[in-house]
Design a protein around this nucleic acid. Structure first.
Lengths: 199, 199
DNA sequence: TTGCCTTCCTAACAACCGTTAGTTAGACTG
DNA sequence: CAGTCTAACTAACGGTTGTTAGGAAGGCAA
């Protein structure tokens, strides 16, 4: 399935518009005009408006999976594993910001069967984080928190970055990633028995 | 400005629909039919569709402010103050879930001047959290984190609850609020000099 | 009873929606 | 040169959009 460059241009333009106006408030003609085309001309390249959304959502989901999943199953100790997963997730959110924002906010406009697919992928993805947290608790290096709630807290915080991050703002993606990783790892850290903490 | 009960019914029905379908994908006729009315009949009660959105957004913003702001300025020590702010914020999110979700996700469909007003209110609200964090750092009870990033992390996580919380799910709002408060307070906690932590 | 007020109805408006059909101009292929 | 392919165009389709106008039914005040 080779993608013509034109098709990708359409997806990129649509991604930008879906992000700033929302899927439902963006017309096919809007997308076309962003590429100096007439509305109907898009249909030489795509089957439907929803098809474009599906492409954007899929490639964003792929991105998260290929960047984060390998780190989740590499057998590293829970703390460093979770740290790298957080950093990779933030990296995807900031580097594919438009796609990520559309993926997170607009996937509900997909048809039901596609929505179900996305739900399943998201749940599997979130399970990677739950597993890292659970592993850390079992190993005694994380405090005995509620795994589900904690995973939601972390992922909500990370995903929120897609809303407010600006590449030309004062904060680099690296800084943000490290701050978030520090924050949550400290939140999870189980203090050792009889330990003296000196600062 | 007294609100007729009918007007409130309209806002409630609209809030539910805006939340599940999005503002742009919800038609005036959809809202009317939810109340067994014809589309045009709504205009005896509201000036425009955007007006309804504005009411919902405003009352949600009011709710956050009246519940949280008093706790933010009561002069309590930063940790307990922040804990209560988090608990109150979660309480609003879960008890006014539909309004909160619309407030957080659909406010971008407001006209520009109203959007600016919402932006200003949100920034002032977020500043309450930044202040609590900054106070804690200055008092030496919180670690020297980046105030801005940390506030965004906390609020993104709390607001995310509006997306996934279900009143009839396994988790009570109280549980969630306490878990989040514990998580972030531990993340912020500055270990004391020469302290022995025993568990 | 008369007249207003509220609440709802029906019908229509201009604009816009996603999508399709038919066509045209230009670039490759034989 | 003839034939085919591609990418774009224009025009139209049936439907929906937010909103308005005008009217009808009922309750309440005089």
């Amino acid at each position: 399935m080779v993608e013509s460059p034109r098709r990708q241009q359409i997806e990129d333009a649509a991604s930008a518009l879906f992000r700033e106006r929302g899927y439902a408030a963006t017309s096919v003609r809007d997308i076309a005009h962003a590429l100096n085309l007439q509305g109907g001309s898009l249909y030489a390249h795509v089957a439907s408006k929803e098809d474009v959304l599906w492409s954007i959502v899929s490639r964003a989901a792929d991105r998260f999976n290929t960047e984060v999943a390998p780190l989740a199953v590499n057998g590293a100790p829970a703390p460093s594993r979770l740290r790298e997963m957080i950093r990779a997730h933030v990296s995807v959110v900031t580097s594919s910001q438009k796609d990520a924002a559309v993926f997170l906010d607009e996937w509900r406009f997909l048809s039901e069967d596609r929505r179900i697919q996305v739900s399943a992928r998201r749940d599997a993805y979130e399970a990677l984080f739950r597993q890292a947290i659970a592993d850390g608790i079992q190993a005694g290096v994380f405090a005995a928190v509620d795994v589900r709630i904690t995973a939601m807290a972390i992922l909500s915080a990370l995903n929120g970055i897609a809303t407010w991050y600006s590449a030309d703002g004062g904060l680099s993606a690296e800084e943000i990633a490290d701050s978030y990783a520090d924050l949550f790892l400290k939140a999870l850290h189980e203090p050792h028995f009889m330990t003296r903490t000196i600062t």
